[in-house]
Computed example of a mutant assay.
Amino acid sequence: MNILVTGAGGYIGHALVERLCALTDLPGYGVPARITLCDVKLGELPPDPRVRGIEGSFADSAVLAAITEPAPDLVFHLACVASGRAEEQFDLGLQVNLTGSLQLLERLRQQGKSPGFVFTSSIAVFGAPLPDHVDEQTPAAPALSYGAHKLAMEILLADYTRRGFLRARTVRLPGIVPRPPAPNGAWSAFSSTLIRSLAAGQSCTMPVGPDATLWLMSRTCCIDNLLNAAWLATQAPGEKTAWTLPALHVSVREIVAAFDARGDGTASARVCYAPEPAIEAQFGSQPPLSTPAACAAGFRHDGNLQTLLDHAAQTL
């Protein structure tokens, strides 16, 4: 069984690959025989003979041909140009997030193997301003090019699945924390900065106010959900191929208070606020979230803020 992971060198991709290498059996697929990793930079590869790494952009035709030979049975498509960077570099965002991704779908269609396909979409499909409550009937209305690219891919993947070209399952990720500091252009990265800084006893400045509300999930929980999506790709699709993942709904103030309670009570004094309206509107004004269909499909959040912070501490 052949697995392909795009964006394998990223924060989520690296942890997913570690988990895949540790599995002796992937439910619905069997024993992974080959795990192909692709990213512009991969770093050190896991010491596993099944792993092969190919550096470069999957949107490059030569790289695309290499990573899809032999044809994969399961694809985790994580690679993207993130929110702020896609706004600032429109051509690059379009090339990677949409044009390159469509080329990947076409390559898989032409191979005729109908692989499982797990796609990481984003809560950016909802845009801003958000309604007072978001549920599984809330219409997508992206306000960023990044969100538009993700929504377009959701629609294409549903159609390719309907036609039997592949078996796609899409998950809309909330903020995954704590990401390491990296110039990836993600405007939602401030939540990771907050957790990482307070865990290290350092000061930080937030581009949102203390009452900003967020949808958050730990990387550990995220990987659990990606593997659940892979298992769902072995089942009959039903009416739903895309889910907004359950997430903890917390405020910046609550996160800071949790660190005050965990330490010597000085976390609050280490946080400054300099709200940026565009970032606060898109990623700091997230209302209560209800996802019963996602929960029924086996997706989960971390349970509570303390557990999320415990999971986060394992990655710092």
Rank of each mutant, 00 (worst) to 15 (best):
A229W: 12
A186W: 04
D73N: 10
G84T: 11
D39S: 15
P180Y: 02
A8G: 12
G28N: 11
N304Y: 08
Q306T: 14
E154P: 02
A158M: 00
W187M: 10
A274G: 14
E69M: 08
T6G: 03
P131E: 13
E154A: 01
P210L: 06
C204A: 12
A71D: 06
V208Y: 08
H249Y: 02
P246A: 05
P277A: 01
P47I: 06
R179N: 04
E18S: 13
C222G: 09
A261C: 10
S83R: 01
H249A: 09
G303M: 00
K113S: 07
S121C: 01
R262H: 15
V134N: 10
I223M: 13
L64M: 11
R34I: 06
A71T: 15
P292L: 04
G116I: 13
A33I: 10
D60W: 02
T234M: 12
A62S: 15
A269T: 12
G13S: 04
A274P: 08
P275T: 11
F165T: 06
R300V: 15
A199V: 03
E239I: 09
V125R: 01
C221L: 05
Q89A: 15
A274E: 15
R169S: 00
T220P: 02
T170M: 02
E276G: 01
S57L: 03
A182N: 14
P142W: 04
L309F: 09
P131I: 10
R109I: 03
L316T: 05
T138N: 03
V31I: 08
W231M: 15
Q286D: 01
V252F: 03
P277F: 03
L151D: 01
I195S: 02
R262G: 12
L248W: 05
Q110F: 06
H14G: 09
A65H: 04
S192P: 06
I67P: 04
R169W: 04
H311T: 01
R253T: 13
S188R: 04
S114G: 05
F283Q: 02
I3G: 15
L92S: 06
L216D: 00
G147P: 01
Y146P: 05
A233C: 14
A182C: 11
A79V: 11
A257S: 13
A65P: 04
G201S: 13
A62N: 14
G30E: 09
M206H: 14
A312V: 08
D159W: 15
G100I: 04
I67G: 11
A59H: 07
G209L: 04
L94A: 11
N2T: 15
C221R: 14
T205K: 09
R167P: 03
A267I: 01
I195F: 00
A8E: 07
G9L: 05
T68S: 08
I12G: 14
T193F: 12
Q282L: 14
Q110V: 10
S57C: 00
R219T: 13
G112C: 07
V271G: 06
